[in-house]
Amino acid sequence: MLKLNKLQTRRLYYLLALMLGLALAAGLILYSLKQNINLFFTPSQALQANLPAGHRFRLGGQVKPGSVIREKNRLQVHFILTDLKRELPVTYSGILPDLFREGNGAIAEGSWGTASQSKKTFIATEILAKHDENYMPRAMYEELRKK
């Protein structure tokens, strides 16, 4: 049963060749589409890409701790997204998701502001919160934070 005769060996080789070819093709396609598959630009990538004002894209990174400023009497929020190398100021008007916290990840969709070209500001129309893969009870979190 599990011994291979000549015919079965040939079939095995055909299948292996098929799988190998597919893996190679898929790998090349995905590699060349890398930029399109990425959901967002990091601040470094966004600064490097030099996109024109008004061009919509997503900017993702960590909300810099201590950078969130909420305007009084308005829903306007200002904060800084960072990838720990470069950072970018973001302005958003609207309701933030619950998990939007300083120090956590966030993805902003929008475009560069048109006002001042010297200091670039990202005007977001939608904010999504990104959480990481760690799950723990509150007590454990507090203990880890103390350390």
């Binding site: 999504l128 990104k130 893969e133 799950y135």
Partner: peptide, 24 residues
């Protein structure tokens, strides 16, 4: 792992300790 995604990485690891408290 390969791309920037909104979905977070894997919590359960086969070869390394999982990133979730044991009680969970």
């Amino acid at each position: 792992n390969w791309w920037n995604t909104l979905h977070q990485g894997s919590t359960l690891r086969l070869l390394a300790p999982s990133l979730i408290a044991p009680s969970m």
